[in-house]
Design a protein around this nucleic acid. Sequence first.
DNA 1: CGGCCGCGTGTAATCGATTGCATAACTAAT
DNA 2: ATTAGTTATGCAATCGATTACACGCGGCCG
Lengths: 352, 352
Amino acid sequence: MERKTPTIQDVARFANVSTATVSRALSSPEKVSEGTRARVSEAVRVTGYTLNQAGRSLRQRSAKTILVALPDIRNPFFSSILDAIEREAATRGYGVLVLNLYFGHETIRRLQDFLLSNRADGLLLLDGSVDTYLLQTLSSQAGAIPIVVACEEIPNSGFHTVLTDNVDAAERATQHLIDLGHRRIGHLLGPEHNVVSRERFTGFARALAAAGLSPVPEWNFRGNFDMESGFSAAARFLSMTERPTAIFAANDESAIGFLSGLRQHGIICPRDISVVGFDDLGVAPHYVPPLTTMRQPREALGRMAAEALIDVVEDPEALGMPLRIVLRSELVVRESTARMARVDMEGGNRSS
Amino acid sequence: MERKTPTIQDVARFANVSTATVSRALSSPEKVSEGTRARVSEAVRVTGYTLNQAGRSLRQRSAKTILVALPDIRNPFFSSILDAIEREAATRGYGVLVLNLYFGHETIRRLQDFLLSNRADGLLLLDGSVDTYLLQTLSSQAGAIPIVVACEEIPNSGFHTVLTDNVDAAERATQHLIDLGHRRIGHLLGPEHNVVSRERFTGFARALAAAGLSPVPEWNFRGNFDMESGFSAAARFLSMTERPTAIFAANDESAIGFLSGLRQHGIICPRDISVVGFDDLGVAPHYVPPLTTMRQPREALGRMAAEALIDVVEDPEALGMPLRIVLRSELVVRESTARMARVDMEGGNRSS
DNA sequence: CGGCCGCGTGTAATCGATTGCATAACTAAT
DNA sequence: ATTAGTTATGCAATCGATTACACGCGGCCG
């Protein structure tokens, strides 16, 4: 009863072969004769043998594990990407380690440790705001740890990258508002130093410019990708006398917070204001009103990033040049955006 | 340039000591003289040494990693628990492997492999519907893999468990509706074979019974914890002539789907119906109307579960009896529930 | 018939860190 | 001065799997 977990030795003894043969029978069956193979299988069955990954890792210097580092697991946007990554990794026989990214050296050190200690074979980074220098070191050293950056771009880093067309998508989202007749259009921004956030602002500005509209700085509301920041932005919106008739929000969460804040003061979407979001969260179609939003192909993004990373892990030469995949987002029109009704000159809104 | 990652040997050579001393200097510094310790530190710094976890795992038969198995990472309820788990694990120096649980033997085998192959030292299970027999085998064998079940209870399993007071919380949620004067109360169920879902139903029924109300089977709407199922339930609700005036939904997501479905047909909450949800998702305070809901202490749950698991991993005797922690949920009253207005006898609702 | 090839298998080294045991150098006690 | 005890360190075995190399055997070719 007090037996330890069986090792390859036990299997070998039972099948009357050497451990080398057992190993071969299990990982390259074509190298052993049919009879031996059968005896080994049987022995595995009887002894209840399972591989000890630590032993294999040590010898092969690979852990069959990838490390996913992300800024916030709780964010449904990231968690659904993580989900896709896990699925892809699972089908290729890899485990997935997750790491929350906070600020400070502590985190970076942890990240480094995971990679350098052979616990993970590669890094899938879902955040562009990590110390680039350190990462470069990691990936260019002799150890050459494969890195794929997803969601956010680290400019000039030379890392493989999988992302969505943020600038273009933001431009199209804004264009949608313009097409509906809006001329007074504001933007609910993402975090100040966030790459994605900037790209979306760029797209927004570009659409305005293309339509010959001049940007109004007061209509750029500081935000933070979360509901609270959208809620606060609503307060600022309400305090203004010259208000926009439409808002492009950097993501759905802030859009929801914003709408929620407005509604408390009787400003109703889409009657009084049109709002387009970004991400197409699960709740978007069920919000009140259902949200018009840019849908990012989250599953595809996660899957492709994982694919790419594992490809490189298994064959560092696999991808020649640094890979750069850009996935197209799709505008989903629902009810939070509506055609401008009447004259545009009166900026005020009455409460219901 | 073509150097491999430095090993403990390199450090030893540089510091002019044996590998044994280096090992001790790093993991039990008190066993080494001060001078040597300094030389080793210096050597570590110069060589850029980092531990190879595979080597250590092999020798110590522990991976400093826990495995978290959950039914759906995308679900914000689970992802925020996962977040708390990761934080706790990080502070104790453990890595976190995640595993999506699907159905079928494939998944179970994977789970088993992870544990038996020494890739993880313990299992944190966020789902009660896994084959109990298999788990029992895992945890009672000589290997004795520590298991903690969180969120859901596996009755009579003898596993350590951390969960919330589902039955009681559901009873209190329902009681809240009763307190508001509702007498015709329905329930939007969770998945049929789900433990949590059943517990919440039990609490619901208990509250009804305590108030002397007789349950109406047609008012139990089949659901699935997701928005779509809530949305479909709304269709059934609308087709009924005798409708409840209040609904206790098994979770916020289904509550939102339900409300969204009703709203499309002009049934407005809380004017025409009161709804109480469960979980207090991030969107709950910003929904229209803001959702009354039972808030589960998700962070605490994740943290305590991780704590307990790591305690057991590090000292199998740490917890004597199977641990059972029950955390109390808290009713958050917002605007989706309102006092019954007039006579209760006319069940119909008019659209606006 | 001799040499070569290829297949299937075994032997033993190896991956990197930890740790039981041995040893040496001191200190303290008798 | 001898012995016992303590502290710091080294030696070498060990964890479990993989794999380079060697070997034996049978078949085939010249």
